[in-house]
Design a protein around this nucleic acid. Sequence first.
DNA 1: GCGTCCCGCCACGTT
DNA 2: AACGTGGCGGGACGC
Length: 716
Amino acid sequence: MEVECLALKDLTSPRKSSPVVEDDGCHSEQKENICTDRRRSTPLKSAEPPIPTSLKSRKGVAPPDHITPIKQASLSEPWTPTANLKMLISAASPDIRDREMKKVLFRPIENERETPVEEEAELEDSQFEAVEEEEDADKKPSRKQKSLGLLCQKFLALYPDYPPLHSPIWISLDEVATSLGVERRRIYDIVNVLESLTIVGRIAKNSYTWYGRLRLEETLEELQQRGRQQGYHLHGREDDGAEGDAGTAGGNRKDKSLRIMSQKFVMLFLVSKTQTVTLDAAAKILIEDSQDSSSHSKYKTKVRRLYDIANVLTSLGLIKKVHVREERGRKPAFKWLGQVEFKSTGNPVNPPMVPEASQPAAGQDLRRTKMARHASFNVTPTSVAVQRRVNSAPSSPRQHLPGLAFQPVDYSRKTNSNPAVCRLQFGNSTEIRPACISSRPSSPPSPHPEQLLPSSPPPPQCLAYLPSLSQPSLVMLYRPESEESRKRRRREEEEEEGEVMKKKGRLEEEMRASPRSEAAESTRIETPDRPAGQEPAQPSHYLYVPNNAGLNSLNFLLSANKSLPPSGVHALALPYVLVPSSALSHYPLLAGGSEDPSKVNFSLPAVMSPAHFMVGGGAPYGLAEVGWSPLTSPSTPEQTRPWGGAPHSPSGQRHTLNISTAEPLTPHTPKETPTSASKAFFQTPGTLGNVVSAAPVARKRGSAQRRLDVGHPPAS
DNA sequence: GCGTCCCGCCACGTT
DNA sequence: AACGTGGCGGGACGC
C-alpha cells in the first residue's frame, strides 16, 4: 500500500510528496500497548491498586458489576476481536468474571495480532483451550497490560459512543479512576485527549460530561479547518488558539498542553494528504509551536507525550501505528483512520479502510463544497524521508477498533425485575463480539436513533450480552443490511413509514397495557455496524424470553453459526441460544461458533432450551425464516405475541421501548444517568458507591488528595 | 541501542 | 491551605 507520510520537512516546505510504501514486513512491529504478551512481568514496583473490597464483594442479583476488573482485566489484550467481550465480561459480577475472563478472554493473542484484517475472526476452539493454559498469566500485569491505550479502552467501554442527546452522562474522574483501578493522574491523560476531541467536556473539577462521538465529526472538521487556517499544512504554525474546544476548560494555563498537543496532532493528520504523520515530524512541529528550542530533551518529552496521545487516539480507532521506512531504518508514524472528509467538505472520499461505517454521516452529504486536501500539504519528503514504506502495524487496531467496536452500552437496566425489551442487530462477520446494548428505560428515545448505532465494523458474530433477564423480556433483533437491502429498506420504509409508526405505537400500547406489567424494560441491542445517519430498521425479529429459568444475571445471546450471511436472511434461521454466563465457559464452541452451521455443535445445556426464547420475524421487509420458532415471521410487533406475549408485557414498556418514538422522555440528570443508563451493564462510576476508600491510591503524597468523593454530584 | 511509555514527583492553578 | 491538574522526565521494559 502506498502511503505518503508527513514529515517535518513537508510541513516546513510545502510541496513535495513522495509515496511511501507500506511496509508489510510488519512482523514485529510491536506496539507495546497493543500487543499482548501476557507473560511479561513488570517490576511491580508496588502493589497494584487493590481492588476495592466493595467491588470485590459485589454480586448477587444486582446488575453485573460494571467495575472493570482492575488489573486482571488488563490481562487481556486490547485489540482483539473479543476485546469487547472482555470488557463485557469484566463488567460482570466478580464471580463469573474471573472464570469468564480466563476462559474467554485469555486466548492467544498472537493469532489475532498476526491475522490479517479480513481473515482473523476465526475463533478456533484451540484458542479457547489455549486460553486456559495462560491462566497463570493473570498474575502480573505486564507493562502493556497497564498501558494507557488499554486503560483508555476500558474508559471508553464505560460509555456509549453515542449517548442520548438528552441524557448527558456525567463522569467523575475519581470514580473512573477507581473503577479502572488506576491513579487519577492517568485518567487525566486520557481525558485531556478525549476532551481535545470533544468526546468529553469538562464541567468542573473532577466532573466531565461524556459526549462520546456525537461531536467528533464536528470537532474533527473544525480541527481540519483550523489546521488549514493555521497553515499546518504549510508549516507548523499556529495561533495558539488552542482553545478550539475550549469553553469547558479552565483558564489558559500553559497547561492543557496535552490537550492542545492532541489537537495539533490530529490537525496534522487532517491536513495531511496521506494522513500519515511520523512521530518525529509531529514532535518537531509541536516543539516549534511551543517555541521551545528543540533541544533533544524537549524532543524526547514531546515524543513521550505523543505516545500518550497516540495511545488514546489508537484506542479510539482514529489512528494506527505504522512505520515509514527510510534509508536509515524506519521510523514510527501514525496513520489516520478516521474520516477526513466531512459533510461540509463534500468529498465522499477517503475510504480509510477504516470501518468507515463508523463515520456517522460520513460522506453522506457530499454535495457541499469540496475542500480538497491542501495540495500544498505534501507529505513526504526529503530530508527525513525519501521513499518510505509504511508499514502497517501487525496488530492494526483498525480491525478491532476497540474504541469503535466497543459499543458499550447504553444501558440501563435496573435491578428490578422487569421484563425487558431488547433490540439486537445481528452482525454478519465472524468474530465474536458483543453486540451493543443500549437500553434506557428511563431515558428519552433518542431523537436520532441512528446515533445510537455504533459506528464500527460489523460485528462478527451475533453475541449479545443480556444482563439480568430475570423476567420476560423482548429482544428486538436487527440484522445488518447490505447496501442494497439498505436502500430497499429505505424505500420500503418510506412507503410504510406510516404503517411502521403505527405498529410501533401498537406495540408500545400493548406493552404498556400488558397484564404483566411491572415495568418493562427495553434493552436495545445492536451491533455496531450501521453507519450513523441511517435510520434504524425495524427489528427483523423479536426474541422473547419468557422466563429466566436457567439464566442468570449475565446472559449471552449467541449464534450457533459464526458467520452469518451478510444478507442476513438466513442468519435468522440459525439457532440462537441464550446462554447464561455461567454456562458460557463450558461451551466455548458456542462462543466460538463453528465454521459450518451444519456442524454446529449445539450441545446446549439444559438451561438453554429453545423454550427460553423464540424468535420471530418482525421486519417489514420481511424475513420468512425463523430460527427455532415454529412461527414464521409476522412482521408486526403484535405478531410476536403469539410466541411470548411479549407485547403483553408490562407497562413500563412504553418509555423503555427503544424504538424511535417521537417525543423524548425525561432526560436523566447527570447524576441519574450513570445509574440508569449504564448500570446493569457497566455500572457507571457514579454508581460505585462507597468505594472511596478503595481508591487506588497511589501516590504517597496524594493519598489524601486522592480522597475520592463518591457521589460527587454533578457540578453544574 | 532504541522505541515505548509507565510512573509519580512536583509545580501551578483553583477552591 | 488543601486540593485539582497535568507538565515533565527518569528509567524500566521489550525487542
